[in-house]
């Protein structure tokens, strides 16, 4: 069932490529010489055991970490080091492994912050909240409402996020990322800590986002079943090194991957 969902979309050329990335924290080598590419409209998974460097990889792509070596090429531009704000303005949105929502704010406000970069009126002129500003605010609100409908969280739109159950918070975080209308969406363990039903819902949302909006998605996931179902291609990391890259079927058959996950007999 790997490719059942891609009827309406066409996978394009290389959109993001990570070239020879190395990242170390002091003596700890988090990533060693990692290279892979992501094509337009594709769902690309990064998997690997705990501590393999998956989150570090994502953090390099959106500029939270600055790799010592290597290049990140996004949409034709090459970067030695990304910067979170630059990444956001180029259309890279993300979610975090440990939910990073604004806890005291309502679901709606959280998602409106996702549109920060889409708002054009001057920061000071907004103080007036008249004319064009008011109209702009309304337009953004409409977009956000559309996403709220899409993620089926209408009933909690005014609730402070801190009060919501974990699974719903994860959904809100996805919503905030979507509000930015990203071209590249980075999802760090979107299904961690969820039960089967919540996982199925989240899977469906991810596939729908990819399908309807054509958003390119890079996701980190532990659940192998999920990864095999959703992704077009998979990168496997272990101890900061790339040990496998290919379609889910190829990766599943890869001996190095099996060894990394199941251990090797001595």
């Amino acid at each position: 069932m790997e490719h059942e969902h891609n009827t309406g979309r066409r996978i394009g050329g290389t959109f993001l490529s990570v070239e020879n990335i190395s990242l170390a924290f002091g003596g700890v080598k988090a990533l060693t010489d990692i290279s892979f590419d992501v094509r337009e409209h594709e769902i690309r998974a990064i998997i690997g055991p705990n501590g393999a460097g998956k989150s570090s990889m994502l953090n390099c792509i959106n500029g939270v970490y600055r790799p010592q070596q290597g290049t990140i090429r996004f949409d034709g531009q090459a970067f030695q080091q990304m910067d979170p704000h630059k990444a956001a303005s180029m259309g890279i949105a993300r979610t975090f492994q440990n939910i990073a929502l604004f806890k005291g704010m309502s679901v709606l406000d959280n998602m409106m912050t996702g549109r920060s970069l889409k708002m054009h009126t001057n920061l000071f002129l907004q103080a007036l909240y008249v004319g064009p500003n008011r109209r702009e605010e309304l337009e953004h609100r409409q977009k956000v409402e559309h996403i709220i409908d899409f993620l089926q969280i209408e009933s909690v739109r005014k609730t402070p996020v801190g009060r919501l159950p974990y699974g719903v918070q994860k959904r809100v975080e996805l919503g905030r990322a979507l509000a930015a209308e990203p071209r590249l969406l980075l999802l760090d363990e979107p299904m961690a800590g969820m039960n089967i039903e919540e996982k199925q819902d989240m899977c469906r949302f991810i596939l729908d986002v990819n399908d309807e909006f054509g958003t390119t998605i890079v996701l980190i996931e532990h659940d192998m079943g999920v990864v095999m179902d959703v992704s077009d291609r998979v990168v496997v990391l272990d101890y900061g090194k790339k040990i496998g890259d290919g379609t889910p079927a190829e990766v599943r058959a890869n001996q190095a991957v099996i060894d990394a996950y199941l251990g090797v007999a001595h």
């Binding site: 939270v64 303005s89 975090f96 604004f102 406000d109 912050t113 920060s116 920061l123 907004q126 930015a180």
Partner: peptide, 27 residues
């Protein structure tokens, strides 16, 4: 009444998340 208020609260809550959604923290 402005989006600054929202951005402020966001920044106070979580720097990293605020940066990731593109709020200009420095300004």
């Amino acid at each position: 009444k402005t989006r600054i208020g929202r951005a402020l609260r966001a920044v106070a809550d979580d720097h990293q998340a605020a940066l990731a959604v593109g709020i200009p923290l420095k300004q």
